[in-house]
């Protein structure tokens, strides 16, 4: 790895102007657990590394049951699962934060970093999709917001333009009688990349599912919202049969590849199994 310049930006404006000036040759450092490896292994290159952990907005962590959660992009994962209120309000988020790497990774890695790394197999993104989160982005033209399912564009790529950076992730306030869950399939029990990941969120009303959302990972070039399967849930009873059918629909929306983490056929099979399991747990948490 060639040496690079290091700048710890103190404000969003400073970060934006540094990033705008250097473009592709500047890289953002949050927890560093992806970017440092990628620079070292030659997968990405940088002349300038901009540390964003001194920027107050990027380290915000604000939860209020009425207004929801504002999660600064560089807040490390452990803050989430150690916060009982947030873990209870957004269980799928806590599920994901708890299994991204081991403890050493969770001390540093952030949900925002997981998003910006934009891996198809990212653990947090299906949970964010299921929870209906939105990305708050700062840039030379000011702030904009993008639904989380539209953030990633292809493996390792996302909607961030020159000079832009992810500031925070906004979660809607937790709805009554709602529940969520994220789970993944890995061959080991920890420290592994998802062969398939599934996040689910459900809101119950009058004994049936009022609405639901399913996010998937490692089944397409980007993590994705399983739209048809999500729509199907509305008005259905929270039953094993409903979840099985939703799993089948989710399966139809998946287009996985074969690699060292698993053959495509197996991944397709897992989409059905994991979607069903994620929904069942989400329903249980919703009190269905």
């Amino acid at each position: 790895m060639k040496d690079f310049e290091y700048a710890a930006a103190a404000t969003l404006d400073e970060a934006v102007s540094l990033l705008a000036a250097r473009g592709e040759r500047a890289k953002i450092l949050a927890g560093g657990t992806d970017i440092i490896v990628q620079l070292r292994e030659g997968l990405r290159e940088a002349d300038l590394v901009v540390d964003v952990k001194k920027i107050p907005e990027i380290m915000t962590y604000r939860f209020d049951p009425a207004s929801g959660l504002s999660l600064g992009a560089a807040v490390p994962c452990y803050r989430i699962y150690e916060d009982g209120d947030v873990a209870a309000a957004y269980p799928a988020l806590a599920d994901a934060a708890r299994i991204i790497g081991g403890w050493q990774i969770q001390s540093r890695a952030s949900i925002g970093g997981n998003l910006c790394n934009s891996s198809p197999a990212a653990d947090s993104i299906p949970a964010l999709i299921a929870l209906g989160a939105a990305c708050k982005i700062a840039g030379p033209e000011g702030m904009r917001s993008v639904p989380v399912e539209q953030f990633c564009t292809s493996p390792g790529k996302n909607v961030l333009r020159r000079g832009e950076l992810l500031v925070s992730i906004q979660f809607p306030p937790p709805a009554a009688k709602s529940g969520s869950h994220y789970l993944r399939f890995i061959p080991r029990n920890e420290m592994d990349i998802a062969v398939v990941g599934a996040g689910a969120w459900l809101r119950m009303q009058d004994g049936v599912i009022a609405e639901g959302r399913i996010g998937l990972a490692a089944v397409a070039p980007t993590p994705k919202l399983a739209e048809q399967a999500s729509r199907f849930l509305a008005g259905k009873p929270a039953s094993e049969e409903t979840f099985r059918q939703a799993g089948e629909l989710a399966r139809q929306s998946a287009s996985p590849i074969s690699d060292m983490r698993g053959p495509a056929q197996y991944r397709l099979h897992l989409v059905g199994v994991l979607t069903r399991r994620a929904l069942a747990k989400a329903a249980e948490r919703a009190g269905a």
Partner: peptide, 10 residues
């Protein structure tokens, strides 16, 4: 106070 992999910290 938190455990980190020092290979992943500058």
């Amino acid at each position: 106070g938190l455990p980190v992999d020092s290979c992943l910290v500058l």
